[in-house]
Design a protein around this nucleic acid. Structure first.
Lengths: 220, 220
DNA sequence: GCAAAAGTGTTGTCGGTACACCCATGC
DNA sequence: GCATGGGTGTACCGACAACACTTTTGC
């Protein structure tokens, strides 16, 4: 509509994990004005020769040193006022990572940490809206794909998978029906191993039969 | 990652309608090199003070003089080489319009027209990929929302709604089951009118109870 | 032996699919 | 009266939800 103006494109990441039965979102704390001390989604500008997905992957690797996890483009947020510093579009992505990853603390940010999605602090820019959108999408996605594989370690007891589903969906599931469906569907397979060191009856360990995203109706 | 470079953001629109039992996509024919004569999705750069959704709405109104139709952001395509003229991101959108709209022929394009989605001509840029993506999304969306309201005139016989579903899903549906579900769900209501001028038994005319997008499981 | 989590089957209901014939009109 | 599309009901089947007790271990 008009000639090029100063405009840039960033990616923002909603990185999720499930820890202690809670769905957690990764946030960084900003150092600079106008949002000094505010928490925000990790992200950054796209490079000259990369796609937004590649930029998101790079950003994720910087923060968690993870590759090969589930990473999906979500939505592009483009309100002209979303960044007080100028016209900036944000292409939001969602990533799912297994629990217990060490996080990279860089000098660019004051802090980095996990927050349960029910108790997020106030966020910078329009990041609260992006986070809401990502959570909603994750809930929907979980029901009809196998993306949960990215949220769990390689081997895990079935009850842990169930707890991940419950944490994300925000409701309790019946263990008999859960096991029946997951097994009948061939989503997981037994490894033959047992979980050691538990204080109680040891659980059988399972693994996902597929570790790439597939559409399949997992829950009703 | 590096300082601002020359970069711009455009919107591309996948505008669909259903006509003569076929799902049709709106294309324009380009005048300028390097894609002279090639067909492409309608689209254009975003303005300084508008969101990408507003840009898409504006673009749609220019081509079809329609407002208040179903319009949804789909995905951002960002391959660094997608436009030979320079770095250009495209935020793809999908729009659904009722059949029989006159199209605006402007001097910017050589031609504008509808193409059945099974027989698209070669497209400029990465528009073939965008079109594939949009068709897939439309199929999925139709099954769990009421967005079909945007594809039909205000009053219509149920058989016409069924033909729209069949055209988009690419398979035949049973008329008894279709009518049962659609009516039971309260998706449409009778107007009491009959279709005049048909050569055969006149059909009852229905209208949608809702003319805004709602998630509801419409088909299996 | 008791506390704690793991693991297991059956039954009822609902929704979806399959399927074939009569109806109203124009010509 | 016939050709054409409009309009209707039933029966079967599979998927999902509800539901309570036994097993294995550590202490």
């Amino acid at each position: 509509v008009e000639a090029s103006q100063r405009l840039w494109v960033a990616v923002d990441l909603a990185v999720f994990t499930v820890e202690r039965g809670r769905l957690q979102l990764l946030l960084i704390q900003m150092k600079r004005a106008p949002f000094t001390g505010r928490w925000a989604l990790p992200g950054g500008r796209i490079g000259a020769r990369e796609t937004v997905e590649e930029a998101a992957e790079r950003e994720l690797e910087e923060k968690t040193s993870l590759t090969r996890v589930y990473l999906e483009q979500l939505y592009t947020f483009s309100s002209p006022d979303r960044d007080p510093a100028g016209r900036c579009l944000s292409v939001a992505h969602m990533a799912l990572i297994p629990p217990g990853r060490p996080l990279a603390h860089t000098a660019k940010y004051a802090a980095i940490g996990w927050f349960p999605v029910e108790k997020l602090p106030p966020l910078a820019f329009d990041n609260a809206e992006i986070a809401r959108y990502a959570i909603e999408r994750l809930r929907a996605k979980l029901a009809y794909t196998n993306v949960a594989y990215s949220l769990l370690p390689e081997r895990f007891p079935l009850a842990e998978l169930q707890r991940a589903y419950e944490a994300i969906l925000g409701r309790r599931l019946d263990p008999r029906n859960f096991r029946k469906r997951i097994v009948a569907m061939g989503l997981v397979e037994e490894t033959g191993e047992l979980k050691a060191g538990g204080a109680h009856r040891p659980a059988r360990l399972f693994r996902f039969t597929l570790r790439e995203p597939v559409e399949m109706p997992v829950l009703a």
